[in-house]
Every structure is written in C-alpha cells, then in structure tokens.
C-alpha cells in the first residue's frame, strides 16, 4: 500500500522587507551601493552605520519617497517603485525630523491623517482615539503641535505612522534628540509594537538600545552591508581571539607562568585576583578546553569570564577597520 501523500508544504513566508542590489546615485556620489538584505515578518531590525552611510536613503527608498538608480526594494513582496500606493498601505514611516504645522492641534493633526488614509465617521474617531491612547497623547489633544516638546512630537509622529495599523514600520532615528526619560518611553512603545508582531526597521545611533530592542542588526558602511546578525554576533564580528578574565585562589603570578607554558594563550595583564588572558581561538569550544586545562593543571579557578565588547566598541572598531582598508568614504 502506498503511503498517504504528504500535505503540501507551505511556501516560505515572503520577507517583510527585501532589498537586492540596491543602488542610489546622487550626481557623482553613490549613497547606496549594491545593498542587499532581508528582514523576516515580525522581526525587529536595527539599521546602523556612520553618518552618510546610506541608512536614510535606503529607508526613504523603502518608504517610496526616493527612487533607486537600480536594484530591487520590496515590502511584503511588492516592489516599491512599481506599486507605491500598495506599499504605502502596508507601511508606516517615521522620518528623522518631524514636520509640524502652524495653527493645528494634536487631535486635528491625527484626524487629518486619518481622513487622508480613508477613515470616515465613527471608524475615524476610533482610530484617532486608539492611537492617542497608545501614545498617551489624550491629555494633550487640544495642544498646538508646534508647542509640543521633542519627545511628545516624536510620539505624535509615531502615532501618525500607526493610524492605518501598518504591518511594517520604518523608523528613522526616532530617539534622536530625546532626553533619557522620553527615550525609555519610546522604547517601551516600540517593544509593544514588536510584541504585536509588526516588522520594524529602526535606525539609531544609540546602539545599546538597538541591541536590546532588535532581533537583528544590519550594519552598513559606504552604502554596503558590512554585517547582518544578532547583537551578539556583531559584538564578536571580526574577532578571532577572545579575552578572558580569570580569577584564581592563591598567587596570581601562577597564571603568568602558566600562560608562558601555553602556546595559544597570551598574558595581557594582572588583575587583583588573577589575570586577563588573550586566547588565539575565541570559539566556545576552545574556551571550554582552556578552562579544562587550567583546572587540570591544578589552578583553582574561581572566576572565568569572556570579556565582551559592547556594541559601540564593536561598531567603532569595525568602522575604523573599514577606513584603514579603504572601505569607507
């Protein structure tokens, strides 16, 4: 008897954002140079790079506000160049500088965009109320928008981007110029949106925040992707060696002697109860073997920690390395 046919496999979900070989030339300057990456649905991706790396241009192309010189940019499988109207329905865009109007209150601002997005009557009022509640702008509904603080302005801008409940959000430097409290509040809102399953592409210069919020980080330099992966992978990007901090019982000088006898280990500096060692192979297996050897050689290890670079350090090192190699502009 033939086995029952297998149920057809579901096609792999379309990436929420797909960019392939994207180029954008402004006169003689190549702002984006063959950029390729993709972001799965429901993922939160951080977009990082030095000023002028091409982040905003890429985001503006994805938001249908700029045209690429060549290449493909898609939102939920739809080409942004050919079908901008369709893309705009799926997309919420928050620019780095929030444009204001004179003589307009918070509620009128949101109401205008709700109307412009096709909401009518009760539905429109409900959408505006929902957004005001989410962004906690209810109390400020009759405040003129050009009198809002930067933080409130960013909330309003996020609210506007959310009016039509888009599946994909592109946020360009939303935390720029915000005080710590406003940044925490904004991060909280973004976390809630991520939990709701929205795909978010967010650029920021505050890398530690991005590292906490994002599933993946895309680091671009001179219009090209240099690295894409988790925050952890970015911290270790380009690192073949690892630095470990070892604490022992007894005389710390023993560690120096032990390091001299070990070809793969370099003694860096002494610490209060041990030393910092550089290990040639930074893989987890090699580190486990190192610890085993230390214990096997009779050293009483009480502390064994891999020293992590923070994201800022990793970013600066990567940019510096690219500059030295001539990869930067």
């Amino acid at each position: 008897m033939n086995p029952p046919p297998l149920p057809p496999l579901d096609p792999p979900p379309v990436p929420a954002i797909r960019v392939e070989g994207l180029c954008r030339q402004f006169g003689k300057i190549r702002a984006v140079d063959g950029l390729s990456f993709s972001i799965a649905q429901g993922e939160v991706a951080g977009f990082i790079g030095a000023n002028g790396a091409g982040k905003t241009t890429t985001m503006r192309i994805l938001a249908t506000l700029e045209y690429p010189t060549s290449g493909v940019a898609q939102i939920m499988g739809t080409n942004v160049m050919d079908y901008p109207a369709r893309v705009r329905e799926m997309l919420g865009w928050m620019p780095d500088n929030f444009g204001t109007y004179d003589n307009m209150t918070v509620i009128e601002y949101l109401d205008f965009f709700a109307r412009a997005l096709g909401y009518r009557g009760k539905e429109r009022r409900e959408r505006v109320d929902e957004v005001m509640e989410f962004t906690e702008l209810n109390k400020l509904h009759d405040r003129l928008i050009n009198k809002l603080s930067k933080g409130m302005g960013q909330r309003l801008c996020l609210g506007r981007a959310l009016i039509h409940d888009p599946q994909v959000l592109i946020l360009d430097e939303p935390a720029a110029g915000l005080d710590p409290k406003a940044r925490v509040e904004l991060r909280h809102l973004i976390r809630i949106l991520a939990q709701e399953g929205k795909t978010i592409l967010i650029s920021s210069h505050i890398l530690s925040e991005l590292g906490e919020m994002c599933d993946t980080l895309i680091f671009i330099n001179a219009g090209k992707v240099v690295h894409q992966g988790t925050a952890e992978s970015m911290k270790r990007h380009g690192l073949e060696t690892a630095v470990v901090q070892v604490g022992i019982l007894g005389d710390p000088a023993r560690l120096e002697q032990w390091a001299l006898m070990s070809p793969q280990v370099k003694y860096l500096q002494a610490t209060k109860d041990g030393a910092k060692l550089e290990v040639a192979d930074g893989s987890p297996q090699a580190l486990a073997a190192l610890l085993r050897r230390l214990i096997g050689d009779g050293i009483e290890v009480v502390d064994f920690r891999r020293e992590e670079r923070n994201l800022e350090d990793a970013f600066i090192e990567m940019v510096g390395k690219l500059d030295r190699e001539g990869g930067g502009r």
């Binding site: 938001a63 506000l65 109207a85 705009r88 865009w93 620019p95 444009g99 204001t100 965009f113 997005l117």
Partner: peptide, 13 residues
C-alpha cells in the same frame, strides 16, 4: 520645506 509633504504623500490622497 516643513517636511510634511512626504507625510501627506504617503497617505491615500
């Protein structure tokens, strides 16, 4: 100039 045209352009209008 006020960067609001792009926001309007992204609506259905």
């Amino acid at each position: 100039r006020n960067n609001t045209m792009e926001l309007i352009a992204l609506t259905r209008m």
